[in-house]
Design a protein around this nucleic acid. Structure first.
Lengths: 238, 238
DNA sequence: TTAAAAGTGTCAATAATTTGACAAAGTAAC
DNA sequence: GTTACTTTGTCAAATTATTGACACTTTTAA
C-alpha cells in the first residue's frame, strides 16, 4: 500500500553506498545512487526522491553546497552523513536546509530510524492526514515485536532486551526463514566498521534465547541455528 | 463529539508550517496550509477556519495586509507570527484585526496555549454555550494530566511541575508506549531553534521522576528509559 | 570417534544513563 | 529598578548496563 518510496544515496565511497542500499532495501525502499556532488544534484533535480542521504565530505562539490543549490529549486528532505570529528556546525547545516544528520560509522538501525522519521514528517505535511501512519509491528504466534514502542512480547509477557539483542531479533524476524551467516549479521546489525569475533553473534543469540525462553519456550525456539551456516528466524507452528 | 476544529497555517517557510502542523496535529486539530498571502486570503475566504496562524513577513502580500483584507469580509480569529526584532506596532496590528501574537522562535506549548485561548474566547462568544468543549484530560492509573487546568495529579496528590517538566510529561503521555529519541524530544518539546545538549533531556526526566515519585512511585515508573534509544511513557499495570 | 561447529559462563572494557552541582536566564515581588 | 526566587541548561562525576572476547564445554554430522 502507499506509493513506492524513492531514496537517493550519495557518497563517493562505493562501500558506503552499498551498505546504505543494503539496509534500506530491506525496508522496501527503492534506492538510487550518485557518487559525487554534481551527479547528485543532477539526479535530485530531475527526479522526485522522498529522501536524499548525502555525504558531507566529497571531492568536488560537498554536501552542504549540494544541499544549498538543491534548496533553490526543491524541498526534498536531506539527511547529511558526516564522519565523526567532521562535526558540522548544526546551524550551518540547518541554514543550508539539512533535515537531519547521521554520524559515521552508522548502524543500520540508526539509518532506518532516521529515514523513517523523515518520511513520517513528510507524510504529515501532506494535505489530508486521515490514515494513521502504518504501525510497524511484527506479529507471530507467541511473539510480537512492536517497533514503535521498541517492545517485545512473548506469550503476553514483556521481554526486556538490550539494544543489540533487540536489533538482532528484529533483523532476523524481518525476514522469516531466511538464513543469515554470522558475518552478514555482524556487518548489518553491528556498525559497519566493526570487525569483531564471529562468536560474538553466538553470545548474543544465547542471551536472546535465554530471555525469550523465560517468557515463552516457543518464542525462544524461533531463533533457529542452521548448522554450518548461521541463524534464522522461523515461525513455530504450535 | 464537538465539531472538528480547522486551522489555517500560513508561512512561506515550509519548515515552520511543518512544525506548527506537528504541534497542532497532536491536539487533534485539522490543519491546512498556505504558503503566501494570496493563497492564504483565497483559502480563508472560501473556508470556515476556527483560527488562522499568519506569518507577518512574507514575500508578496504580508500578514497585516492579508488580515486587513480578510476583515472586510470575515471575523475569523487571526494569530500573527512575528520574528523577534520584527516587533510590529501592536496598535497597527490590532487595527488590522489581529487577535493575538506569537513571537518566533516559539515553543509548542506557546502555540497550543494561544490557539486554545482563542478557541475558548470564540466559543464563549457563541450564543448558547450548551455543549461543553471536549475536555482535554489524560487519565491513567495513578496519574491524571488535566491539560485544561494544566494540572498533574498522582495518586490523588497534586504534583507541581515546571513548564518544561509539564510539557515533557504531556508530550510523552500523549502517545503512550511510543519511544522518542532525545533529539526528537528536544526538537518538539523545546523551542524549534534550540540546539541544546541531549543530556538536558535526561536532567528534566530526572526532575520529573523525582517530583512524580514524591506523590506516587507508580506514576514515576511510567517514565520509562529505553536503553540506547530514548524515553517513553508506559502505563504501569498495578 | 573425531573434528568442526555451536553453546556457555565469566570478566574486563565500553557505553549510556543518572545524578548533583553550578551558572545563567527568566520571573515575581517589593 | 533591584532583589530574591525559580526555572533552565550544561557539565562532569558516579553509577549502571551492555558488549565483546575468550576459554571451555557440549553437540553435531560424518
Amino acid at each position: 500500500m502507499g506509493k513506492e518510496v524513492k531514496i537517493l544515496v550519495v557518497d563517493d565511497e562505493e562501500r558506503i553506498r552499498r551498505l546504505l542500499k543494503m539496509y534500506l532495501s530491506r525496508e522496501e525502499y527503492k534506492i538510487e545512487e550518485a557518487e559525487d556532488g554534481n551527479e547528485a544534484l543532477a539526479k535530485a533535480l530531475e527526479n522526485e526522491y522522498d529522501v536524499i542521504l548525502l555525504d558531507l565530505m566529497m571531492p568536488g562539490k560537498d554536501g552542504l553546497e549540494v544541499c544549498r543549490e538543491l534548496r533553490e529549486k526543491k524541498a526534498t528532505p536531506v539527511i547529511m552523513l558526516t564522519a565523526k570529528g567532521e562535526e558540522v556546525n548544526r546551524v550551518q547545516g540547518f541554514e543550508a536546509g539539512t533535515d537531519d544528520y547521521i554520524v559515521k560509522p552508522f548502524s543500520p538501525r540508526e539509518v532506518v530510524l532516521r529515514v523513517k522519521a523523515i518520511l513520517r514528517r513528510a507524510s504529515q505535511t501532506s494535505y489530508l492526514q486521515t490514515e494513521p501512519t502504518t504501525k510497524d509491528v511484527l506479529v507471530f504466534p507467541h511473539l510480537t515485536i512492536d517497533h514503535d514502542a521498541h517492545k517485545v512480547t512473548a506469550d503476553g509477557k514483556e521481554v526486556n532486551l538490550t539494544p543489540k539483542e533487540y536489533e538482532l531479533l528484529y533483523y532476523l524476524a524481518k525476514a522469516p526463514d531466511k538464513v543469515f551467516e554470522r558475518e552478514q549479521l555482524l556487518k548489518e546489525v553491528w556498525q559497519y566498521e566493526f570487525f569483531g569475533d564471529l562468536r560474538t553473534v553466538d553470545t548474543h543469540v544465547k542471551r536472546l534465547r535465554e530471555k525469550l525462553n523465560k517468557a515463552s519456550e516457543f518464542a525462544a525456539r524461533m531463533i533457529v541455528t542452521v548448522w554450518g551456516v548461521g541463524y534464522k528466524f522461523e515461525v513455530v507452528n504450535e
